[in-house]
């Protein structure tokens, strides 16, 4: 899933300051699961904005609504009646959702309430880590199901580097496991260390962002 976190309140207060009537739009998908922009977070953010506004003797009409997914037009049309007459929309979705709302409402400014961080998942409730770099050409079959692109600080294809110590990465030994240590251990358990003995050639990054914005067309699925 896409993992995001709320922007600092200072930034959000600045963003919303010029507006009196806003719509705080939540997303029921990834950002609900990572507790950043779901129904509960919409309630909390709206409440914080209202308290701050009232504290300064000003008024704010904050409409609240969370759609199933902000990254699909058929779901965001539910926001239409709520968006009517608002001066700005504060989207609590990832960057994808924000852009879909901006496309749907050409005359209403749409602002992001979250910083979209990475593709990953929970380690435990409340802790999320990055797992996939979206490189466009998956090599997990070669690395025991552990992604060196996302999880090695250097995205090495032939690791580990000299900065691996006691299974930790020198970039932040407290918080980052050495992905290549994990890969080695896993391949050893699988009895497939010989795969690691092969030198991987430089990766073709044209499948990733280096090839420009990406697009997938499935002719059979196109209506």
């Amino acid at each position: 899933m896409i993992v995001a976190e709320r922007k600092p309140m200072e930034e959000l207060l600045q963003m919303t300051a010029p507006f009196g009537k806003i719509l705080v739009a939540g997303c029921g998908a990834c950002v609900t699961v990572c507790m950043a922009g779901g129904e509960k977070e919409v309630e909390v953010l709206s409440s914080l904005l209202l308290i701050e506004r009232k504290k300064n003797g000003k008024e704010l009409e904050a409409r609240k609504h969370t759609v199933e997914r902000q990254c699909e037009p058929e779901f965001i049309k539910d926001l239409d009646p709520r968006a009517e007459g608002v001066e700005m929309i504060l989207s609590m979705a990832c960057g994808v959702g924000v852009q879909y709302l901006a496309e749907r409402y050409p005359k209403i400014p749409v602002y992001p309430a979250l910083n979209t961080k990475f593709m990953g998942g929970p380690v435990q409730q409340g802790i999320w880590t990055e797992k996939c770099g979206g490189c466009g050409n998956c090599i997990l079959s070669l690395t025991g199901g552990i992604c060196p692109i996302a999880r090695c600080s250097k995205s090495l294809l032939n690791g580990p580097c000299g900065g691996s110590e006691n299974g930790k990465c020198e970039v932040d030994p407290k918080n980052i496991d050495c992905a290549w240590q994990l890969i080695f251990d896993r391949m050893k358990n699988l009895g497939k260390l010989e795969i690691l003995a092969e030198i991987q050639p430089p990766k073709d990054w044209s499948y990733a962002r280096d090839g420009g914005p990406r697009k997938i067309v499935r002719e059979d699925a196109v209506l």
Binding site: K40, E43, V44, S47, L48, L50, I51, K54
Partner: peptide, 11 residues
């Protein structure tokens, strides 16, 4: 108790 229960009274 959820976060909103603690904030709403202040609102």
């Amino acid at each position: 108790v959820e976060l909103i229960h603690l904030l709403k009274p202040f609102e």
